[in-house]
């Protein structure tokens, strides 16, 4: 068990390193001069060159990379002599477009994204798994067919359509809810819920449809296993057979998908955040792309990818917790 986790963590560190190099190269592969992007249209060559030196863009690529990584761990100071600027740990760069440290911007954007991801995650897991088990237990009957039909529709609908429809009907036409205006739940919990409920639901519909189908197929697969027959031969009541024996055995792929999907959303749900004006990571990333804000693009990419890699190891550890064959081998 322990060596397994150590091995996974080593692999994760290696992946993160690789990831940082790729994102860094991405930054430099853009067919524009990063220094040129630091000031507006009427920008003199002197200012461009000054900024180039201040940001360290004149140095060789490996040196730039090391400085960037160092900045993440110990912070860094841009410029030299009297004109210096401190970028605090973890320093992910400085956004000239916003005149702000990228880390600060990400910290501001993170809560909205986390609330969005976690809220819809809970919704879709509860509904997806429950209806998946229900459908599997009534395979072929009308309940199963109805659920499968609904999930097919839910899974096929693009998230922007669901989101826009909800926005249009619930808010614009029927005025059930006020226009979305994100506030922190600590400031105004009611307004927070009013803003989040539709984004939660519209994301959850898509994922719940997928998890219903996944759970159903997993359950159908494990229900035909020999150990389920054994459980019944022992005289266990059917609901115990389903919950304790079949569901537990079919859990692994569900956990994998759940980890990956949650991590993906934590990196920013671009469309949903846009539709419901949530100031989250996805929105930050897209705005950065639109404005050619290179340090922000790099940083948001790095953060989103880090979520995925960390989720991978969490899932691996959960595997071991679920399946003793993984833990003990």
């Amino acid at each position: 068990m322990f060596p397994y986790i150590i091995r996974r963590i080593m692999l994760m560190i290696f992946m993160l390193l690789l990831l940082s190099i790729v994102t860094f190269l991405l930054f430099n592969a853009v067919p524009t001069d990063p220094a040129r992007l630091t000031c507006g249209k009427s920008c003199s060559p002197q200012i461009i060159e000054a900024n180039r030196i201040r940001l360290g863009l004149d140095k060789p690529l490996p040196v730039q990379y090391v400085e960037w990584i160092k900045g993440i761990f110990v912070g860094r100071t841009y410029g030299s002599g009297t004109q210096t600027f401190d970028c605090h740990t973890p320093c992910l760069g400085y956004s000239f477009k916003n005149g702000e440290e990228v880390t600060v911007m990400i910290k501001q954007a993170l809560p909205a994204t986390i609330y969005l991801a976690l809220g819809s995650f809970i919704l879709w897991m509860v509904f997806g798994i429950a209806s998946g088990i229900y459908a599997a237990n009534r395979k072929g009957k009308w309940q199963d067919r109805t659920i499968m039909g609904i999930t097919l529709v839910g899974y096929s609908l693009p998230v922007f359509l669901i989101g826009l429809m909800m926005l249009l009907f619930v808010i614009v036409r029927w005025n059930f809810l006020p226009y979305p205006d994100y506030v922190s739940p600590t400031v105004n919990p009611i307004q927070f819920l009013q803003t989040m409920i539709l984004p939660w639901i519209s994301l959850a519909i898509l994922y719940a449809a997928y998890y219903t189908r996944l759970t159903r197929s997993q359950m159908l697969e494990t229900m035909s296993e020999d150990y389920i027959r054994t459980a019944r031969a022992k005289g266990l009541p059917e609901n115990r057979v389903v919950r304790k024996h079949a569901f537990r055995a079919g859990l692994t792929p569900i956990v994998t998908s759940a980890g990956m999907d949650l991590a993906g959303l934590l990196g920013g749900a671009v469309i949903t955040e846009y539709i419901f004006s949530l100031p989250g990571l996805g929105r930050l990333a897209i705005d950065a792309v639109k404005e050619y804000d290179l340090p922000t693009i790099t940083a948001t990419t790095l953060v989103a990818a880090t979520f995925i890699i960390v989720a991978n190891i969490v899932v691996d550890v959960l595997y071991a917790a679920i399946d003793p064959r993984v833990r003990l081998s």
Partner: peptide
């Protein structure tokens, strides 16, 4: 019938590896 199973009538199967649940001791 369920109440009889395991109490008054029991069954063993061909492949004991697949007949035992892999996740429980």
């Amino acid at each position: 019938v369920r109440k009889l199973r395991g109490l008054q009538m029991a069954m063993i199967f061909q492949d004991p590896l697949s007949a035992l649940h892999p996740f429980y001791t």
